[in-house]
């Protein structure tokens, strides 16, 4: 299995979803109205999904961000934040859509992080937010997103 396929398998096994195209993504976002996005993505989102309106991160139902890389070993996405408020995008909304280039797949977490350790805050995100705190029953979306969707950039 090549790295990309291995990553996809692991990513989906952690509860992540994959959107194969923008139109597929649009269908996954049915019923959603308010979005927030990283600066670079705003134009793309506004033009591709005309049913969405941009709002503040804390008001948003869905967020659009760019991941630095994907990790095969754990099926994680890695995010490093530079602009103010960016970190809230991966944390607050109910649905988190991350864009990632197919070229940015790393075999291990170590490799993914080694060039990022000069950043003040990095997060490694693996699947949606979850808990089993009440009777061990799985519930997604406690304080973070209940859905994590990956959309290929290229």
């Amino acid at each position: 299995m090549d790295e990309l396929a291995a990553f996809v398998e692991k990513f989906t096994s952690t509860g992540g979803e994959i959107a194969s195209s923008l139109s597929h993504l649009a269908s996954l976002l049915k019923g959603v109205e308010r979005f927030a996005a990283e600066k670079e993505l705003r134009g793309l989102i506004a033009s591709s999904f005309d049913f969405l309106t941009e709002v503040e991160p804390k008001e948003a139902q869905v967020s659009f961000t760019k991941a630095v890389c994907g990790v095969v070993e754990t099926g994680s996405l890695v995010f490093a934040y530079s602009a103010e408020g960016e970190h809230l995008l991966t944390a607050l909304p109910r649905i988190h859509v991350a864009f990632l280039s197919r070229k940015r797949i790393c075999p291990t977490v170590e490799q993914a992080l080694s060039s990022l350790m000069d950043r003040a805050y990095v997060s490694v995100i693996t699947g949606p937010s979850k808990t089993g705190d009440i009777e061990l029953i799985h519930v997604m979306g406690v304080h973070g997103p209940e859905r994590l969707i990956l959309c290929w950039e290229d």
């Binding site: 754990t74 992080l113 350790m117 003040a120 997060s123 490694v124 995100i125 693996t126």
Partner: peptide, 23 residues
């Protein structure tokens, strides 16, 4: 990597946040 596996059988935690400075 060892901790969540040995603890509850989870491969990796949903969120690993790494702080190196006030961001």
């Amino acid at each position: 990597k060892v901790l969540p596996k040995n603890s509850v059988g989870l491969d990796f935690s949903s969120y690993v946040s790494i702080f190196t400075a006030p961001f």
